[in-house]
């Protein structure tokens, strides 16, 4: 059985991917209900990447993106980012606010708040699913909405994880809206502690020990 540098074995990685994948599906369902559009997961991809390559997750460190960032706190910590190209985020704001597409040209307080709410829903649905499958109590933080270079958006989450290791596990999700594939992405970046806690709790649940 292959063991990764982080000490996590393949079988555990798959279990983890299953838990996060299920959480992601639930998060996208929540998002779909909130915006009243048919949003589907197109691709789920678990990645293990060297820290130095983190910005490649978003297509390059200088690429301008809009992101909603949440930290997961409680039994363990981890990071959730909902990321879109800027124009897509503006389109989503228009949909949320019932405006004609193309109305939003920049993110003011109201627009950021609408996107933040989208992050809240996504984060809560994700963590509810994780809680159902593991019994772990996790809470999302207040969302931060950013429009900036991809590298700078990822810095906060990545620097937290890099305290004690040099690689990142990332669950990357691409979804479609009304059957139109967009480059929206839900990125889940767990700390080592978070992965361990999820795996341990899910094993306990499977064995019927609570």
């Amino acid at each position: 059985m292959e063991e990764h540098k982080s000490g996590i074995q393949d079988v555990e990685l798959w279990k983890w991917a299953e838990l996060v994948g299920e959480g992601t599906q639930n998060a996208v369902r929540g998002l779909s209900t909130m915006v009243g559009l048919d949003i589907k997961v197109v691709a789920l991809d678990l990645k293990l990447i060297p820290a130095s390559q983190a910005a490649n997750l978003l297509g390059g460190a200088e690429k301008e993106m809009a992101a909603i960032y949440l930290m997961m706190t409680g039994a363990a910590t981890g990071h959730i980012l909902l990321i879109y190209p800027k124009e897509v985020a503006f389109g989503l704001v228009d949909m949320l606010m019932g405006s004609e597409i193309g109305t939003t040209k920049e993110l003011g307080e109201m627009e950021s708040s609408a996107l933040g709410e989208m992050g809240n829903i996504t984060g809560s649905f994700f963590l509810n699913s994780v809680a159902n499958n593991t019994g772990l109590r996790l809470m999302p933080s207040i969302p931060t909405v950013m429009v900036d270079m991809a590298g700078s958006i990822l810095d906060a989450a990545v620097s937290d994880i890099l305290h004690d290791r040099d690689e990142l596990f990332a669950m990357e999700t691409v979804f479609s809206i009304d059957n139109k594939e967009i480059n929206g992405m839900l990125l889940v970046l767990p700390t080592a502690e978070f992965m361990d806690a999820m795996l341990a709790h899910s094993r306990q649940l499977e064995q019927g020990v609570n």
Binding site: S141, I142, D148, D155
Partner: peptide, 16 residues
């Protein structure tokens, strides 16, 4: 050394 996250929130590590 920017502060990308909101001031005063619990996930603000002041890393920058």
């Amino acid at each position: 050394g920017s502060q990308m996250l909101k001031q005063g929130t619990e996930h603000n590590f002041n890393t920058g």
